[in-house]
Design a protein around this nucleic acid. Structure first.
Length: 312
DNA sequence: CCCCAGGCTTTTC
DNA sequence: GAAAAGCATGGG
């Protein structure tokens, strides 16, 4: 049965940039109806469309999530509970006036609260390669190992794949799986090991405290797994565990820290030591509780406005 | 041909 | 300790 509703929100949102800024790699656009964005959240196929700055149309044909709860479900996913005024402190705009003007168009970017397992695997695919290759890997994992389902949109059935469960990925042959990891066998093996960790309960994202641990402890815990370093650990925390204080530092973040914030630390090569130094530095001009939320807005703005990247 | 992409691990000084 | 090489592929 089709369920459709319009939800109104307090803040503005840029839905497309929020979904396609590279925090989730799983949203697709139906070429016949490019204004509709389709994906599976949890195990529920969902369709979203932006109606105005602060209204969205949401659709679902699934009863996995009780449909009457869908608005709350979507609100949580899009972090609509987070007010814009928390993200940057009041001291920020006067200190960085030029940057603040450019950032204006990007403040409506929302961070998604995604599934932690999906987030972990997606960002393990993101080592030293371009965004399109990352997206290719994640969608191949979905299509090769994910359960197939459908969403009905305007009478047309669109096929979709649910992201595979930890148990499914735990059971695959790493060598065969490497066709999904850009032929990188080490990465394939690391992902299978991580999936086994989740399937066997050694990695437990539902563990009480996982979302309250001090950031350094959480990061060190996640880094126990092969293929996960500081950056990927922080991405899992930020996008998968709703830890908006986690501040992942990659090549782009390093670049904008130098150019926009005159960080001399950012001139050094990115090592564990300089990573921690940059992390501490960023918290002096970003609100520490929302450093990663702000960081993702800066990241997306940097890539689009300065690097002129079209595909993201 | 080069260098760079949402890095991490191993080896070498 | 810090630096360098290896991993893999596509695009500028």
């Amino acid at each position: 049965m089709l369920y459709k509703e319009v939800i109104r929100i307090n803040n503005e949102i840029n839905l497309k940039d929020s979904l396609f800024s590279g925090q989730s790699f799983l949203w697709i656009i139906d070429t016949d109806r490019p204004e509709y964005y389709v994906s599976v959240i949890g195990r529920s196929p969902v369709v979203l469309r932006q109606i105005s700055d602060n209204t969205l149309e949401i659709q679902s044909t699934s009863n996995t999530v009780r449909n009457r709860l869908l608005p709350d479900f979507i609100s949580n996913y899009l972090s609509l509970d987070i007010d814009h005024k928390y993200i940057f402190s009041e001291h920020f705009p006067p200190l960085y006036q030029e940057l603040w003007k450019i950032l204006g168009d990007y403040l409506s970017l929302r961070i998604l609260r995604q599934d932690p397992f999906e987030t972990m695997i997606s960002f393990m695919c993101a080592q030293g390669i371009g965004m399109h290759l990352i997206r290719k890997q994640v969608s191949m994992i979905q299509q090769c190992y994910g359960e197939k389902t459908f969403i009905t949109l305007a009478g047309k059935e669109i096929p979709l794949h649910i992201f595979p469960t930890p148990e499914r990925l735990a059971a695959v042959d790493p060598l065969a799986f490497s066709i999904c990891t850009n032929n990188n066998r080490i990465r394939a093996s690391n992902i299978v090991l991580a999936a086994q960790g989740v399937a066997e309960g050694r990695i437990n994202f539902d563990h009480p405290g996982m979302r309250e641990l001090p950031l350094s402890e959480l990061r060190n815990t996640l880094c126990q797994n092969r293929g996960i370093g500081f950056k990927i650990a922080d991405c899992i925390a930020l996008f998968g565990l709703g830890r908006f204080d986690a501040f992942p530092i990659d090549t782009h973040v390093k670049q904008y820290l130098e150019k926009w914030f005159n960080s001399t630390t950012a001139l050094r090569s990115l090592t564990p030591a300089s990573y921690l130094a940059l992390d501490a530095e960023a918290r002096t001009f970003l609100n520490p509780d929302f450093a990663g939320y702000a960081g993702h807005i800066l990241f997306h703005c940097w890539r689009k406005e300065v690097k002129k990247l079209r595909s993201f």
